[in-house]
Amino acid sequence: MDINTIHPTDTEVELVLHGRFDAHETEAFRAEVDTEMASGHHHLRVNLAAVEFVDSSALAELVRGMKRCRELGGDLILVQPSDPVRVILELTKLMSAFEIV
């Protein structure tokens, strides 16, 4: 999986993921999230438009990131999840846990 971090503005951060987000990728994702949070960015957008599959480890990592952001007054928002990712979020009953745009 590729992770491309973009900063549309000084306060906005979007992690654009591409590929398969599974247990092999959670460490890199966590490192990216932690780096941004350490820089004071607590409002993270995670773009999932080009992610074809997320496994349970990836879902757990997204939930972890979301909870950490919210604890600090921010949020982790999912952006344009692909159709399979959206279905997986539905089946795991996580659609309502996230803000999805």
């Binding site: 997320v54 496994d55 349970s56 399979p84 279905v87 089946l91």
Partner: peptide, 17 residues
Amino acid sequence: EWRILPTIGAIATHISS
């Protein structure tokens, strides 16, 4: 239990398409 739902989601989305 840890893997079955994402797998069903991926398969169901693709085969349905």
